[in-house]
């Protein structure tokens, strides 16, 4: 596949997707990097909160959401592979499966937040719990953005906008989804694993 002809001038190497989505991805990851620094700082300042924190959370929900995100990312790769074969219907179906993964993630998060409230895990007076809500709510917002991007790509695929020769928009939606997956890859151990 030659994306260079679509997105980059001659002599400049092409990037996967398009340049615009990489601006968004690098901004997203920079934002999370600052939050990871805040996690390290508050862990240093309030070690007791952070040593006891992970045991307060629902580990099963954290594991389930991680597996769902990784699986959804895999389904997104299958969508790209399908459109490269010029199979737009299969690509659309793989994107729908990817989106369903995102919706399952949100449902598990809703269950987890409800479980938290029932078990007194609220963000007042505890640095770990406050950090947990800042990180997970922020990630949740990015999952919602990613879902909206996937819906747009599904609609475009449905109406024949993508082909083996031109599917830059589909790739961009998938790349953003992977970036959201990358953020969760870091968040999961910070909150659920490291005592």
């Amino acid at each position: 596949m030659d994306l260079a002809a679509n997105v980059a001038p001659a002599g400049v190497s092409a990037v996967p997707g398009n340049r615009g989505i990489w601006v968004g991805i690098l901004c997203e990851l920079s934002e999370f990097a600052l939050m990871f620094l805040a996690w390290a700082w508050f862990r240093h300042v309030h070690p007791d909160d952070f040593h006891a924190g992970p045991a307060m959370l629902n580990l099963g929900s954290g594991i389930a959401n991680t597996v769902v995100m990784l699986t959804s990312g895999y389904l997104a790769v299958r969508a790209v592979l399908a459109i490269r074969r010029d199979d737009a219907i299969a690509a659309r179906n793989w994107l729908i499966a990817t989106l369903l993964g995102g919706l399952v993630f949100l449902l598990i998060k809703a269950f987890e937040f409800r479980w938290n409230v029932e078990h007194g895990v609220v963000g007042t007076g505890n640095s770990f719990v406050a950090m947990y809500y800042y990180l997970t709510f922020n990630h949740l917002v990015h999952v919602v953005w990613g879902c909206l991007g996937l819906i747009w790509a599904i609609l475009r695929a449905q109406f024949g906008a993508y082909s083996a020769a031109d599917h830059e928009g589909l790739e961009a939606a998938v790349l953003y989804w992977h970036a959201t997956d990358l953020a969760w890859i870091v968040i999961f151990p910070l909150l659920y694993v490291l005592h």
């Binding site: 996967p16 954290g62 592979l81 790739e171 998938v174 999961f188 151990p189 659920y192 694993v193």
Partner: peptide, 25 residues
């Protein structure tokens, strides 16, 4: 984007899941 094929994509996904379960342990 990537030049990965279906088989390798599946192996990478399985590897990621195994690493996640290892973290949980």
């Amino acid at each position: 984007m990537t030049n990965i094929d279906e088989g390798r994509a599946t192996i990478v996904w399985l590897g990621l899941v195994v690493l996640t379960l290892g973290s949980a342990w």
